[in-house]
Nucleic acid binder design. Structure first.
Lengths: 272, 272
DNA sequence: GCTTTCCATACCCCGAGGGTATAGCGCCCC
DNA sequence: GGGGCGCTATACCCTCGGGGTATGGAAAGC
């Protein structure tokens, strides 16, 4: 199977509309239709049930979408890793938000050891994708918020959660809070879709903005909260979950340099 | 990156010779050379150091060979799984050799439950590959001899090891043996390369033949030994490792039918 | 029933990919 | 050391498949 054809299919399967898929792929609709027909003929399986009004996946189509995505990311990962194979440095994916100061220490340590680490800024939740696509060698993320299934991780520091709330809020002066105190409040907790806003939140600025607007609190890992904008406050959540800052990398990484970075990171970690 | 180009590169990287690789790919050598050049140009990396006398991989080439193979197997897996997505049955990979009678019981149980299971015979050690390539849904194998890294497994039965030896051997009449008894004997143990023969042994017949010839004993899982050819005998190895017969499947399998098969298998298992 | 929407068909065209012939370049061997 | 040999790169040609435009045709909505 040609990877180009597979990419075409994935686009159609995601859009469930040949016209939009063609547009996304930067091509006209008719050749796309034919490409899918060719693919179906070659596989000997019907992938899409299409009327002139609706396109939907068959069982085989579901399978090809799921497995095909994996194959395509494996392909681009191979490509990216190869591109960067000669270069000496590592690419470290970091998301916006605090990290308990561990990043600064790690970078300083790397610099003093002449280890070339290049930062790759990315959105929240994008790190796993960057690793899988081979665009980053290692990522600094928060467990268990970022769930790096199938990735190797090394915990660098662990702490609890805090409640982020407007300084004017009735709970803002408390020394600490418990989950019971939050009953009745609307609480944002990073769980994908946002209650009332359109789409998931992918930016720390959006969270602080959301809280600043009032009406919503947020429970966040303590290490995640960096500089607070004026008008906001944090209070430790006594019975919150523990959260960790960790390094993550592809399990199958065989890089000598990566091993060294992980070693340095563990030395920098207050756990040590 | 086109999957075809990647296939070309893998062939060349494995052969380290453009002519032979082209032959293997069923094409002429010049277009293959150009395809590799294109690939290198597109990736912006030199993959092969080639003189007119010798071809060798660069660091980037090593990476692309390793990662590219993964991508290609993911691709063919997607293809195979899609082809078989509509079909109701499961493909069960079995290797030659005994299984303690579990296969017969499992198949009988499946038949009575109207579960369509199709056997796929394969060589020893090929099962993992078949699973990864999507050519089989589930395999019956021996732990820890077959090492299904990254596969889910379910143990069906466990027993010890036996020593396979000529009936005329001085130890053949013993009730049981220990490792100490085997000191000084040449023992074959499935560990990949064979001591004095060319290449690894991949067939049970070869093992029994080897032992029949005399001079070598073999330590095998008890469940693996089926009908003995005349002139051979088995003696339990008291302090041998435990070995298991297990089902294995891709961790990411989402098949309802597979789940049912595993359930039936656990019912058939004497462990229950 | 007309319009709209969206997939399929018809037809054309270009260039990437593949083939053959051959040059170029080390290496080995006599 | 020079000719043969083995192997890759270049030159040149040609085909066919992937892509474009125009249009048909079916289903849903007003």
């Amino acid at each position: 199977m040609e990877s180009r054809e597979l990419g075409y299919f994935v686009a159609v399967a995601e859009e469930l509309n040949f016209g939009r898929a063609a547009q996304r792929l930067g091509m006209a609709q008719p050749p796309l239709s034919r490409a899918i027909q060719r693919l179906e003929r070659r596989l000997g399986v019907r992938l899409l049930d299409r009327t002139s009004r609706r396109v939907e996946l068959t069982a085989a189509g579901e399978t090809l979408l799921r497995e095909g995505r994996k194959a395509l990311t494996a392909l681009t990962a191979a490509e990216q890793l190869t591109r960067r194979a000669g270069a000496p440095g590592l690419v470290l994916a970091v998301k916006p938000g605090g990290d308990g100061g561990i990043l600064e220490k790690l970078l300083a340590r790397c610099a003093s050891e002449a280890l070339d680490v290049q930062l790759r800024l990315c959105g929240i939740g994008e790190q796993e994708h960057l690793l899988r696509m081979g665009e980053a060698d290692v990522a600094l993320l928060h467990l268990p918020y970022d769930e790096p299934a199938g990735l190797a991780t090394q915990v660098l520091l662990t702490d609890g959660e805090v409640v982020l709330l407007p300084a004017s809020h009735r709970l803002a002066d408390r020394e600490s809070l418990s989950r019971a105190d939050l009953a009745g409040e609307e609480v944002f907790t990073w769980t994908g879709e946002c209650p009332s806003l359109g789409g998931p939140i992918r930016d720390t600025g959006q969270v602080t903005q959301l809280v600043s607007l009032g009406g919503t609190l947020a429970v966040l890992p303590a290490s995640f909260v960096g500089h607070l904008p004026p008008g906001l406050a944090t209070v430790p959540l006594a019975d919150g979950d523990t959260s960790s800052v960790a390094l993550a990398w592809r399990e199958d990484s065989r890089s000598r340099t990566l091993a060294k970075l992980v070693l340095l990171a563990s030395e920098v970690s207050p756990w040590n």
